[in-house]
Amino acid sequence: MAMSETSRTPLPHAAPRGFLAAAASQHGGLITAFFLMALIVPFLGSYWIKNFTSMIAVAIAAQGVALLHARLGFVSLAGIAMMGVGGWFGLRLAHATGLPFEIVLVLAALCTGAAGVLLGLPALKHRGLIYALITLMFAAGFHVVVSSIGFPDGGSGFWGRIDGSAERQLMARPAIAASDLAYFLYALAIAAAAFTATHIVTKSAVGRAWAMIRAGDAVAHAAGVRIGIARAKAFGLAGALAGVGGCLLAGSIGQLDGRSFDPVQSLLLYGLVIIAGPWSLAAALIAGFLYRMFPAILDSWGVDGDIAITIFGLALIHAIVSAPRGIAGQLHDLTSAIQNRLSGVDR
């Protein structure tokens, strides 16, 4: 019961000093990346446009993983599984109600947010490795269920599965974004909104509460922070982000395949978020890029895309050993070095 003032929340990945100040001015690069994608991707072929759309969907879910890691110090190894949950809700709601895509997206986000809060409940008692394993077991369980039952495809009943010979139905895309390209731009706009919302929340009273909890449970209590509620909000937001990502992915392909939601994918996404540097809002985009585009690029070069996993493993070791601020941090150093060079500042 005792909480001495020295019992700071153990947080092995506390933000490195110096980078914190930089984080504020760092969104320039992220905004540029969004604009560049909007300008360049339309000129790529359909294969790339679809891959970029998936990447954006994954990036939104990765934002939730980064949030839990950086703001709360919790390791979530269920990032892709939660995307699957979001996709399930999206498909189920779309087929059952025929509501416009936007409304389905919001509802899927809310349902997945609630699922995120539930998955956060064990965090009341467990943290560190134990909590990470709980999320990994959830990811594994989700994979088992969804690969045996399958994602909803327009059938009736709770699971919404078509039986027998009837044709599987695809989830309808938004009316304004029926083509692959329009849908990519649509997803990009949703991602921009989701990232902005995440930024606003971290700058609000909720974000301040998270920061106080990181500083220590005792000071958080003394400052009037309700720790359980503040944490639940983070788990809810992370779930909602995964829900948006999963629903966008379902809308992109029209249906989802349970086999692509195996727990290794969630594990991989977490590793990529760490490599990317979760302290930065841009990390999610970098993680999405590595997760989806890097293997696609290798494939297009005729190299086995699974090689990517090996390369990611090495990158993770590199990140842990020598780049604790991740790729986002290194990119930031690079851009500020260039800026200083251009403005003649010698450091």
């Binding site: 933000a15 000093r17 009273a205 301040r208 920061a211 990181r214 500083a215 005792a218 400052a223 009037g224």
Partner: peptide, 21 residues
């Protein structure tokens, strides 16, 4: 607190504001 408990990644102003939240 005996050892000042200030969140590293909040500004001085935000560190104070949190008590009002």
């Amino acid at each position: 607190f005996q050892t000042p408990q200030v969140a590293d990644d909040l500004t001085a102003s935000e560190n104070i504001q949190v008590a009002l939240d």
